[in-house]
Amino acid sequence: MKRVRLALAAAFMTTAAMASDHLDSPKVIADPRVDIGDIYAWTSSDGRRLNLVMTIVGHAFNKDAEYAFHVDSGPRFPDTTARTDIVCRFASMTQADCLIGRDETIQGDPGKPAGLKSASGRSLLFAGLRDDPFFNNVKGSRDAFDLAAATLKQGVPRDAAGCPAYTPQQTAAILDRWRHTDGGPARNFLAGWTPASIVLSVDLALVNRGGPVLAVWADTTVDDVRIDRMGRPLTGNGLLAHLGSDEEADAYKLAYNEATPETADVFVPVIAKSLALYDGYDGRCGNQLMIDASAPPAQRYTPLAKLLADDRLWVNSASTMCTQLFGVELAALPGGARWRNECGGRTLHYDAVNVYRSLLAGGNNDAVTDGVRADDQPHSDTVFPFLAAPVHTKATYR
């Protein structure tokens, strides 16, 4: 694992798959400076700006890389008609050069917490080390998946769609592993992690040409080659060759990172197989988000698999109420009226890993939990640069 201390490498080789998107393929393991850990996107509390955060696993930026947010906009979910690219390069940690759309530029030292303004004053940038707001009981999750895989090998029956029918005792054992760490209280594996972070607050008029509904994804490229991409938490890291071999997973993740939302349909079949496994983790089959009970078994998981393969983070920028991961998608479903005024997206305070897995396991926010409900540091969804200042550096990249 190039440029990473051996102790950190050993830890992540066994646990990285359970982080949101950290160290998800051999290419990003080779250079953590282009490895996207997480992205966040939400409407500002005054309803005037889109707030964006990209955390990078390495503690520095690659001077040869481009770090980009892509913001598709449209009148309603899932229709988008325009795209605005926000592309940043960093000659050093004290020299940023960002282009927002065609004309908005931000240049200079981005390291002051107050932020670096664009010439027009419509955009604000911070880039530097901050505390990672993502929280996750990695060890408990790994223990749960290992037990689930071992239990499957013992002959757990599956229904026609591939969902495993765990017994109540087996389900209880898996869920118990999930909410503990080494048999004790759940711990956040990423406590104290201090990634390089790109934080932007952008006038909505710069990114909503197509309409108020925004679909956000991010990528890193070097010499026009895409190294990593991400939208929602865990999709690229948790649903490709789920419980398969490391070699299978690496091949899928490399191909997935090279794709775009427009070319990602090829991953629908493998994601659908992973969704079948997730559907059984709460002890019930057929209660996952977007399940069509009337569909043939072979198509049960296709609608959600298509949505997740697209892998964009949806934000209703007409709303400032941001409380629910998948809020925009939920509002578009039958019976989704309660979410109509929800901005969706992802703020720094969403219990993203638990809500994501719960929607996949039981179609609600609380079907499963890893026992960790908040980060160890206080972050802000309203005060720039949002992420808490680093307390200490957990690892050093050279």
Rank of each mutant, 00 (worst) to 15 (best):
R5N: 14
L8W: 14
T14C: 03
D21L: 05
H22S: 11
H22F: 08
Y40P: 00
T43Y: 06
S45I: 08
D46Y: 07
V53R: 02
T55K: 09
H59C: 06
H70S: 12
D72Q: 14
I86N: 04
V87T: 15
M93T: 12
T94I: 10
L99P: 10
I100L: 13
I100C: 09
T105R: 15
Q107Y: 02
K112N: 13
A119V: 10
G128N: 05
D132V: 03
S141I: 03
S141E: 13
A150W: 00
T151K: 05
A160E: 13
P164C: 08
A165N: 07
Q170Y: 00
A173K: 14
I174Y: 00
G183T: 06
P185Y: 06
P195V: 09
A196N: 04
S197P: 07
S197Y: 01
S201H: 08
L204I: 12
L206I: 11
V207W: 05
R209T: 06
P212H: 13
R229G: 06
M230W: 03
G231F: 04
N237R: 13
A251R: 15
Y252E: 14
V266F: 12
A272E: 09
K273A: 14
D279Y: 00
D282C: 11
D282L: 02
G286H: 05
L289P: 04
A293M: 01
A298L: 04
L307H: 07
R312K: 13
T320N: 03
C322I: 04
L325Y: 09
L330K: 12
L333E: 13
A337K: 11
N341V: 04
H349E: 12
S358E: 12
A361T: 11
A367G: 15
G371S: 11
P378V: 15
F384G: 08
P390S: 14
V391Y: 01
H392M: 12
A395S: 06
R398T: 14
R398M: 14
